[in-house]
Design a protein around this nucleic acid. Structure first.
Length: 259
DNA sequence: ACGAGTACCTGGCAGC
DNA sequence: TGCTGCCAGGTACTCG
């Protein structure tokens, strides 16, 4: 389930391998895989060079010559792979002899030209304790739902929101308006620390997730996960699941470490 | 405007 | 073994 660290790992691999190369062919094996066939997004790509690969939140942006962009969201099962097409390939690019394909078994991924509105990048300078406090304080929704709201902060999903809340000692069900400035400061710092570590470890490849980077390499943040998918927290307390899921996601927290 | 709920989709797994 | 049914996840939508 790609969140910011996984998408960033994919971005780095793609940029390293594709920058400066020209797209020589495009193949869309099954246009019916799309709800709306992305003619606009995939039209006119052949002949353009890849000037760079950027990331915003969980979105990948291929920056192409002539001012064109190709925007991808991996959804939860999307993968970009160097190599052969498979049964779930949505499109395949030839880039000067290399083959790059977008696989998406569960079809939650998106292919397009446009990006939605985002909050700040959590690892960037605009995401500060004060900015987080100002975004969260007027809101009554559970803080975990706010962290997963891409308009509050871009790139967190269930795993990293859960981990950051544990690291900050804040329960996921707390209303945004109940957070103190000190808690916002800790939460901001925890988000940066958790995401920074996860990026440096190439993301998470959990047992139930098929995440691999485009070269087939697994991440290793799952070895450092404190609570997500576990039963006992690092200090030995039994974890608890929130009785009703938050924002439709299962939520875990430690009743001792998190207030 | 906000928050809650749900559709989308299919692989993987538990339970029979 | 083979079947059923549920769960996972992010986003975009509807509804109150």
């Amino acid at each position: 389930m790609p969140e910011l660290p996984e998408v960033e790992t994919v971005r780095r691999t793609l940029e390293e391998r594709l920058k400066g190369l020209k797209i020589t062919a495009l193949d869309v094996p099954k246009p019916t895989f799309y709800r709306k066939p992305p003619k606009k997004a995939l039209g006119g790509l052949v002949g353009r060079a890849v000037e760079g690969v950027d990331r915003r939140g969980k979105y990948l942006i291929f920056r192409l010559s002539g001012g064109r962009h190709l925007v991808l969201h991996l959804g939860m099962s999307g993968r970009i792979v160097f190599g052969e097409r498979g049964p779930h390939t949505r499109f395949q690019l030839s880039v000067e002899g290399r083959t790059v394909s977008f696989h998406d078994a569960r079809r939650f991924g998106r292919v397009g030209c446009d990006l939605p509105e985002f909050g700040p990048e959590p690892l960037g300078p605009d995401f500060t304790a004060d900015a987080l406090y100002r975004a969260v304080h007027p809101r009554r929704a559970p803080v975990k739902a706010l962290l997963m709201d891409q308009a509050v902060v871009a790139g967190l999903g269930n795993i990293y929101a859960t981990e950051a809340l544990y690291a900050a000692g804040v329960r996921p069900g707390r209303r945004g308006s109940s957070l103190s400035r000190e808690e916002s400061r800790r939460l901001c710092a925890s988000i940066k620390a958790v995401l920074g570590l996860a990026v440096s470890l190439g993301g998470s490849t959990l047992e139930d997730s098929a995440y691999l980077d485009p070269l087939g390499r697994a991440g290793s943040f799952q070895e450092r996960v404190a609570v997500y998918g576990r039963e006992i927290c690092p200090r030995g307390h039994a974890l608890r699941a929130t009785r009703r899921p938050i924002a439709g996601r299962t939520s875990l927290y430690c009743p001792v470490c998190q207030k």
